[in-house]
């Protein structure tokens, strides 16, 4: 199971990193979301993996580590706020600059590049 989780973390991290390096806002937001998943599972996994041992007193014979869970719980919500913020930023940038590209080039530069091709 540990190997499975590690594999998931690895793939999600890699995909997230690749996506946030793309040139347009939408994949960057997707990448950040993906990276949040990976980070959350990573943090959660720091408490080691256990089945059927929720940290609810009296529900199980022994309990998994509740601390990473508490940390990750708030991280999920904050991650949503962060994704939303980035999305709002992307929309604002689209409204202000008329482009959803994040490669640092202005609309005019894009147009000249287009012509050159």
């Amino acid at each position: 199971m540990e190997i499975m989780v590690a594999l998931m973390i690895a793939v999600m991290t890699g995909c997230g990193v690749y996506l946030i390096l793309r040139l347009r806002t939408f994949p960057v937001v997707l990448g950040l979301t993906m990276l949040s998943y990976a980070v959350n599972i990573f943090l959660f996994a720091m408490g080691r993996l256990r089945a059927d041992a929720p940290a609810v007193i009296g529900e199980a014979a022994n309990y998994t580590d509740p601390l990473p869970q508490a940390l990750v719980l708030t991280a999920i919500v904050i991650g949503f706020a962060m994704t939303a913020f980035l999305m709002a930023l992307a929309l604002r940038a689209w409204g202000e600059f008329g482009t959803d590209h994040v490669d640092g080039k202005t609309v005019e530069q894009d147009a000249t590049d287009e012509e050159r091709r």
Partner: peptide, 24 residues
């Protein structure tokens, strides 16, 4: 992405398969 993904995955694997101290 490949190096970071692989590194993070291996780090997670390492921690998960080694016992550790917890304050929980």
């Amino acid at each position: 992405s490949l190096s970071i993904g692989a590194g993070i995955g291996l780090l997670a694997l390492f921690v998960m398969t080694h016992p550790g101290e917890t304050i929980s």
